[in-house]
Design a protein around this nucleic acid. Structure first.
Lengths: 124, 124, 124, 124
DNA sequence: GTGGTCTAGACCACT
DNA sequence: GTGGTCTAGACCACG
């Protein structure tokens, strides 16, 4: 697969895997001709224990964003709900963060500048 | 002191203490007539072990935001540097968050609305 | 490990541990085939409590000279920065010490002799 | 008296007092017409507890550098021995420090430059 | 009273 | 196995 785990970030490896899988799902990188990699395949590609990948997938399954089909593999679930959930989380973070900045004496004008910068940057 | 620790949040208690002390320092709640509570005093008030408070205070000391005076107590250090450090951290978070929202298809106009809301809200 | 703590020196044990680890890092004694000893291992070898070793390691981590990898172990960090920091500290000490000797009536010639002696001695 | 204690240095106050008294003795600032200040006098001048000054003086007495004359005051003792003791201590420190610098890869030439600087500076 | 250090245990999450 | 956190005690030096 197309990423590497960071053993020194403090972030649990299974969380890093979840994050990357989540991004790939949102970008629509998985479909019938390009399925979610199997547990063993991904574990081998990342040089990581199989259990670590299993945990990442299982947690996604519980949240409804992957469906396990025993003996076959994992398939993407409700992408749109995933997108909405993430968007909702991020918006709450944004609102909280802005209020904190305001309380720290940060000006609305400077915040506006940063906002403009974000939308001016290229899409990764 | 005037807060309670959450034993079930997963956030280490000493981090919770650091967070609250940090807020209080930023609000200028500590001075000569209203000093930082002693480790034993705070530990007792929170129903927490002394060592847990000691750790929170010591980390602040290493970062230069509290000064320990053995046999006397803890005193606030460089408040302005603390404020700048926090502001810098928050701005990085903001920039990252905005880019993620953009990549999720969120419109600049909606982001602007949230920004306006934040500065319209009352200062706590 | 290969040293013993001195319980009666007045120097905190975790400081003694930091000092020895620092020397070992500077000498390049740690790498992938010879990793930093685990906290439990070192604590047992020194006959010291685990927490005491943990404190020594954690302070090094906060200073950037060790990196903790939960579930795996500690690894050496930025050795070169460590070397520079120590050199800087020692040079300040040297400058101060020489001025004190001068003020005590010590002659430059005698100081030169001691300097020559130091560089004539063998490298340990 | 002519100095202030630093409550935030971590160095015990009685040690700071000893250090300053030691310097004054070495500079010959005390004689019959200019005696060592009384315990109460010094304590008041420094805004410090009497016991703290008593401790500093008593330790000097045990080392033979001050003599207590009950009901009268303290008088300077064997100044020359004090000077020799300090010189000896500093020389050991110097030798040790130079060897450490050498082991850190510091060049003799650079050390020489620092030495020259020290004797070029003015006497305080 | 204050902070500073240390011990002997314990439980947790991660690999 | 690893590190991370926490507790309940203890003793010390300082003011």
């Amino acid at each position: 697969m197309w990423f590497r785990v960071d053993y020194h970030s403090g972030v649990p490896i299974y969380e890093q895997i979840k994050e990357r899988i989540k991004e790939a799902i949102l970008k629509g990188e998985f479909d019938d001709s390009n399925p979610v990699p199997s547990v063993r395949e991904l574990a081998k590609a990342l040089g990581v224990n199989v259990n670590t990948v299993v945990r990442a997938y299982r947690e996604f399954e519980m949240e409804g964003f992957l469906r396990a089909q025993p003996g076959v593999g994992y398939f993407v679930g409700d992408v749109e709900r995933l997108r909405e959930k993430i968007l909702c989380d991020k918006l709450q973070q944004l609102s909280l963060l802005l209020k904190e900045l305001r309380d720290l004496g940060f000006s609305k004008e400077d915040a506006l500048r940063i906002l403009e910068d974000a939308w001016r940057g290229e899409v990764r």
